[in-house]
Amino acid sequence: MKKRNAISGRIQLLDKDAIVKDAFKAMPASARRLFLGRAATLGGLSMLTGCTVVDEESAEKLLMKVSRFNDKVQGWLFDPNKLAPTYPESMITRPFPFNAFYGEDEVPEVDTADYKLAIGGMVSDKHAWALDELYKLPQTSQITRHICVEGWSAVGKWGGVTFSTFLKRIGADMSAKYVSFKCADDYYTSIDMPTALHPQTLLTFTYDGQTLPAKYGFPMKLRMPTKLGYKNPKHITEIVVGNAYTGGYWEDQGYNWFGGS
């Protein structure tokens, strides 16, 4: 996919998936779901046997059911006290790879002056946060491994406020099931409350000691070393606490929702 394969330094062959990704952007959500209908098919298997052995729609339904089951298993496996490994500065991957569902030249430019982080759902304080206000919260930083669903991984340093601290500050109902995110690039995703409260889950404003650059998610990225890259939203504009399942950009196309590591 749209990855500068800096980790391996190898030249990436043109990836069909990158083209697919670009095509997705132009597609309305309903068409995307239809696309999955064909995408999650037996593909190679029907090619091997020379016929369509299984009704593709029911195969896809079954696969999605197993994926929901895998969400449950992962929720059950998740240990809120288990920490992801941290690394020394010397192990930071430079340059850290850019990855999104669009190219690096299409990264959204968020205007600092106008920016406000909207808060909604099951919280007692719904006031929108300006960046200055967020920067005044207690800050911490962490060097962890970012693992992409594609299989590559890279070590990076993110800094910001521990997300559980922030959730407490806005008076979030911690018994809610989900925390959902909306982003300036129209990306969206949602996570389970136990992961939101994990001590290493940070709402980050810096990368490697600098203000988070646009390509890494300015003005903020939710960084969870216990989840795959696509679960870590960038350019966040709205956070909602609630019990309604809201899915996610990739999750709605078939990526596993829990996406934990």
Binding site: D17, V20, L36, A39, T41, G43, E150, G254, Y255
Partner: peptide, 15 residues
């Protein structure tokens, strides 16, 4: 290969 794209392949693999 099986799955049509990464997401589809992952669904098959994890089932």
């Amino acid at each position: 290969t099986l799955g049509g794209w990464l997401g589809g392949a992952l669904l098959w693999h994890f089932a």
